[in-house]
């Protein structure tokens, strides 16, 4: 019970940290990392609630397994878009200088 509580409270604190990063950090890569921290905190909360002492609830475990793969895929797509946005910005800045 106490162990669940430690993990749950920590995950919600992590969620707050990620939310701050999303709001306050201007760079797109840092925002992406902040969103990932928020996602991981949700996984942590799900795993903490799946623990019932003697038995493990398999449904949240399956949800987290699904979520991890989708989060990785989404992060990769966001990174690619960030690189493309950065390249466009760079081109605009270069043409403005000339």
């Amino acid at each position: 019970m106490t162990q669940d509580l430690i993990y749950s409270v920590t995950s919600l604190a992590l969620f707050g940290c990620g939310f701050y990063g999303l709001l306050a950090l201007p760079h797109i890569l840092r925002k992406l990392l902040a969103i990932n921290i928020m996602g991981v905190s949700v996984f942590m909360l799900l795993l903490a609630t799946a623990n019932h002492g003697t038995s493990i609830d398999p449904v949240p475990h399956a949800m987290v397994l699904t979520g991890i793969v989708v989060a990785v895929a989404g992060t990769a797509l966001c990174l690619k878009l960030a690189v493309n946005i950065n390249a466009i910005d760079q081109n605009e800045r270069d043409s403005n200088h000339q």
Binding site: V9, L12, A13, F15, G16, C17, F19, Y20, L23, A24
Partner: peptide, 14 residues
Amino acid sequence: ACGLASFALSGGLI
């Protein structure tokens, strides 16, 4: 303001 907002969010959820 951002820090306070996220602190409130975390605290509310906890």
